[in-house]
């Protein structure tokens, strides 16, 4: 992984309904850098500014003040091609299956690349590849997207964005309303895209467990500001502050903290089931015997 900066946000502010009685500052001096190939999670309570933030990243919303650089170029420069930015930064909205509209799945996935100006043939190839990568059975390609299950529809919607070959994939709560297996399918797919294609991924989620399992870095939003920006273990170590702003740590992290406070020497940085298991087995079987008196 290189340290090349894909995107830089410099003191981005966004104000809704400026100069009216309903003025709300949705983003306050948001600054951070995104390196190529990172897998980032964004968490924050409803209304914390997450959705506003990600819409700035592909130029759908324009900052009231501040700058955003994409590959070193200011995206608000007059000669910057915002259309091109939207091709390279793919955004999957919440409930993306509501945006399916074509008569066949294949046509729906072709829509993006065609809109990019690609020829029929090339767009078809891209659609084929994208549908294959999301693991949709080929016999379904020419059926109506509306007959699919919720999880399948969502995969088709994601394929529609992947077919545009974005460098960055932003997903706004991609698993809301899906059953556990559907949730795992979508997140495993995203993780595979990240691993195999080196695509940069930004995942907005309300599930701390999902975030803990997949991302390398977490940005916590609160009242339009960046509250924490760190590795998952470091962010979840602040679980009390997270609770105060409507968030939480993964369940296993709470478990580890409780065990520690009861005198068992365990790793409170564990945020996934696997990490917790390792630490507990170490502590209980004496491999890692640093046990103090149990209360």
């Amino acid at each position: 992984m290189t340290d090349k900066m894909l995107m830089i946000l410099d003191k981005v502010n966004y104000v809704y309904s400026e100069d009216t009685a309903y003025q709300i500052q949705a983003l306050k001096d948001v600054s951070f850098k995104i390196a190529e190939g990172q897998f980032i999670g964004i968490i924050g309570h409803t209304g914390s500014g997450k959705s506003t933030l990600i819409q700035h990243l592909n130029g759908l919303m324009k900052a009231t003040t501040g700058s955003i650089y994409f590959h070193g170029q200011d995206i608000y420069d007059d000669d910057f091609d915002l259309r091109e930015l939207r091709n390279r930064v793919g955004l999957v909205f919440q409930y993306p299956e509501h945006q399916l509209f074509e008569t066949t799945i294949f046509d729906d996935v072709c829509f993006g690349p065609k809109n990019q100006g690609l020829k029929e043939e090339e767009a078809g190839l891209r659609a084929f590849e994208a549908l294959r990568s999301v693991g949709l059975p080929e016999e379904l390609y020419y059926q109506s997207p509306f007959d699919l299950s919720g999880g399948q529809k969502r995969r088709v919607a994601i394929a529609g964005v992947l077919a545009m070959k974005p460098e960055v994939l932003i997903l706004d709560e991609p698993t809301a309303g899906l059953d556990p297996a559907g949730r795992d399918e979508i997140l495993d797919l995203v993780a595979r895209m990240h691993r195999e294609r080196g695509i940069t991924v930004i995942l907005v989620s309300h599930s701390m467990e999902d975030i803990a399992k997949y991302v390398q870095r977490i940005i916590v939003m609160n009242h339009g500001e960046v509250m924490f920006d760190d590795t998952p273990s470091n962010v979840f170590a602040h679980y009390r502050e997270l609770e105060a702003v409507g968030l939480a740590a993964p369940q296993v992290t709470y478990l580890m903290h409780e065990l520690k406070s009861r005198g068992l020497s365990v790793n409170t940085e564990a945020i996934t089931v696997e990490e917790a298991r390792e630490s507990l087995i170490g502590a209980l079987t004496g491999i890692d015997s640093g046990r103090r008196d149990i209360r």
Binding site: H45, T46, E173, A176, G177, M208, E243, G246, L247, A248
Partner: peptide, 10 residues
């Protein structure tokens, strides 16, 4: 599914 769209606190 009253909680599908909510944050942990909600």
């Amino acid at each position: 599914e009253p909680t599908a769209m909510l944050d942990p606190n909600g």
